[in-house]
Write a protein that binds this DNA or RNA. Structure first.
Lengths: 216, 216
DNA sequence: TGCGAACCGTACCGTACGGTACTGTCAATG
DNA sequence: CATTGACAGTACCGTACGGTACGGTTCGCA
C-alpha cells in the first residue's frame, strides 16, 4: 500500500511499466495499426495472456499507456516569486517553448493520434483522459504563472481561462494539428525559440500592463 | 471532355458522387471503423466490384471522399473593396465565424480524424490533401483580406503568413483539437459569435493601426 | 431482336486480429 | 522435496475485413 492514498488510477508494477514502455515505442514507430496484442507481447517478451490479465482488454492497455506516459511528463511548478516584468516574460517564454516541445514529441503525437482515432466510437474515454492529464496539467502551470503575474500587477485580465486560451492559441496556432496530420516536420523548422518569443511578445501586448509594448 | 482543363484531379460521375456522399455520411456517424467497403456498398446500393473499379482500392476511396468534400466547401471570395476600419472588422469577424463553423462541422471533424489516423503510415497523402484543400484554401481568403487591410493602411505587418497564423491561433486556439478528441460539444457552448469578436478584437489590437484599441 | 457494357448482389478467399486455453518453466515457500 | 503461483510461448478459435470472381439484370444501341 503506497503513500499516495487519493490515487484511484491503478499504478503498475515495474514489469508492467516496462511492457507499457515497449508498447509506446511500438506505437510511436508503427502507428496504431502496428499496435496489436501479439505485437506488444512479442516486443515486450511477455505473453498475451499476461497482457489480458494485467490490462483487461485492448482498451485497457491503451488507457494504461496514456496514464503511464502522463505520469512521466509531470509538469514541474516553476516558482514565480519575485516576479518582475523581465522574469515574467522569461517564464512565459520558457513555458511556451516547453509546450511546443511537449506537443511535438513523438510519443505525444502518437498518443494524440490514437485518442483521436478512437474518439468516434462510444465511450472511449481516451480523449478526455488525454485532455485531463495533458492540457489540464500544463494549464495549471500556466494558470499559476498568469495569476502570479496579475498579483504582481504585471498582467491585466478578468478571466484567467480566457487569457490562457489566448496564450495557447498564440503559441500553438494550428501547429499541433499540422504535426498530427503528418506534415513534413522539416517544414516546421523547429525554431520554437523564435515562435515562443513572438507569441509571448504578442500576449504581453494584449494582457501586459502597458509599457512593455516592445517593437517586433 | 470538360472545360476545366488544368484539373488533374479526376472528377466523378453523378452516380459516383452519390456514392461518395453515402460514404461520408457513413463515416460521420460511425467513425472510421464503420467505413468498410461492404458497408459503403450497402449504404450506397452499389456493388463492391464497382467501388474497386471506380476508386481502385480503399485508400483511393478515402482520397476521393476528401476531394469530393473539399469541392463542396469552395471558399467564396468576399470582395473587400472600400475597406474601412469598421468593415474590415466585420469582414474579419465573419471570416472567424465561418472558420469556426467549418472546423466544427461533422464531416470536417470526421475527415480530419480519418486523415490523422492514417498519418502514421507511409505515403498516405490524406493529411497533405486535407491541408492543401482545407487550410490553404481558406487561408487564401484570409490572406486576401489581410492584404486588402494593409493596402488600406488599416493593418500593419511584414509577414502576411505570420499575421494569418496569429489570427488563426486567436480564433481557434485548441478548440479544434478538443473537438477532434471528442470533447462533449455541449461544453464548446457554440458561442462562436462571441469568440470571433474576441479574437478579432485582439488581432486588431496587435496588427491594427492604433485608434481601434477598444476596451474589452 | 441481338449484343455488349455497366452494374448490382452475393458468394468466396486469404489473412489478420482480439481473445482464450493449454503446456512447460522458473522461483518462492513450507 | 512437494506445492503453488506467476509467467512465457504457442496453438487455437471466431470473426471481420479487403479484395476478387461470378451469375443475373438493366439499358443503350445497332
Amino acid at each position: 500500500m503506497q503513500l499516495a492514498a487519493h490515487r484511484h488510477e491503478p499504478d503498475y508494477s515495474p514489469r508492467q511499466n516496462a511492457v507499457l514502455d515497449s508498447a509506446l515505442r511500438l506505437l510511436v514507430d508503427g502507428g496504431e495499426k502496428a499496435l496489436t496484442t501479439a505485437g506488444v507481447a512479442r516486443a515486450a517478451n511477455c505473453s498475451k495472456e499476461s497482457l489480458y490479465k494485467w490490462f483487461g482488454d485492448r482498451d485497457g492497455l491503451l488507457s494504461a499507456m496514456i496514464g503511464f506516459q502522463a505520469s512521466k511528463v509531470r509538469t514541474f511548478d516553476d516558482d514565480a516569486r519575485a516576479l518582475t516584468a523581465a522574469t515574467l516574460h522569461d517564464h512565459l517564454v520558457v513555458f511556451a517553448r516547453d509546450l511546443l516541445e511537449v506537443l511535438s514529441g513523438d510519443v505525444s503525437l502518437a498518443l494524440n493520434r490514437l485518442a483521436i482515432g478512437q474518439a468516434s466510437r462510444d465511450g472511449s474515454k481516451l480523449g478526455s483522459m488525454l485532455q485531463e492529464r495533458g492540457r489540464r496539467q500544463i494549464g495549471k502551470r500556466a494558470g499559476a504563472l498568469l495569476e502570479a503575474g496579475r498579483k504582481a500587477s504585471l498582467l491585466v485580465f478578468d478571466d484567467r481561462d480566457e487569457a490562457y486560451d489566448t496564450l495557447y492559441g498564440l503559441v500553438v496556432s494550428d501547429l499541433h494539428l499540422r504535426m498530427l496530420l503528418g506534415e513534413d516536420s522539416a517544414r516546421i523548422t523547429k525554431d520554437f525559440g523564435r515562435r515562443a518569443e513572438r507569441a509571448v511578445s504578442a500576449f504581453l501586448r494584449l494582457y501586459g500592463r502597458e509599457k512593455n509594448s516592445a517593437k517586433p
